[in-house]
Amino acid sequence: MRTAAIRATSLLLLLALWETAGRFWLDPLLLPPPSDVATRFRELSGTGELWTHVAASLGRVIVGYAVGSAIGIVLGCVIGAVPVMRDFFSLPIRFFRSVNPLALVPLMILWFGVGELSKVILIAYLVAIVVLYNTALGIETIPADRVRAGRCFGLKGIGLFVRVIVPAAAPGILTGLRLGVGFAVLVVIGAEMIGASEGVGYFILLGRQYVAIDDIFVGLLSLGAMGVLLNQVFLLVRDRLLRRYVRTTLYGS
């Protein structure tokens, strides 16, 4: 309770400081005070302009993320479970993981154009790599005795895989899925700044071209809100629906 009170006060204090600084010390055009940003936010959301951009970004992220995570989980399971595949894919995965995600934006645009396809492919690719890696790692690091216990129950083959191995690897899979959210948001903004006609990234860059810093702030705040929202949805799903899979009995408290 006390912490919450300090936090609330701190936020209010911060806003007050920002307001005073923007209004009295600095040029409000350079540092628009929160009240100006709020007014601009109302304008932009009133005309629906902001929502068009947010919806465009979210749409790309959701489609790319869905495709990428599905591919990542399936491939990760196969690679993690088959030792030969594990050896075979270890170097390629290491290579692709080390490629800088934003550096790929121009290449994808060059290959697949400035339309939706290049963005969705890029998001899907990045999510797939990080999910695949963590899924395979999750399967590799399952304690041997847990698999042996499953075999004592007479499970083998697909049954063992579905009922013991995949659930036991769930923490790894979930780690990958969570990192994927961050990559997806990062790269969609990059792609929208370089080649797009709508989306939050495009909107922020536009703000810079018109030196409309209040627009940039509105864009950044919606971007942060988007990140927080996606993360919260993820945590909600994990902690409500998948709670049992992230319990650990291995290391005690």
């Binding site: 922020i204 810079r208 810093i213 940039i216 864009g219 950044l220 971007l223 942060g224």
Partner: peptide, 26 residues
């Protein structure tokens, strides 16, 4: 820390590329 944690966490959740136009404008 109680004072800083929430704002810092929010800034952290914005991808760094978002801040590039702001930094250039400033």
């Amino acid at each position: 820390w109680t004072f800083l944690e929430v704002p810092l966490d929010f800034i952290r959740s914005v991808p760094p590329i978002g801040f590039v136009p702001l930094a250039i404008a400033w």
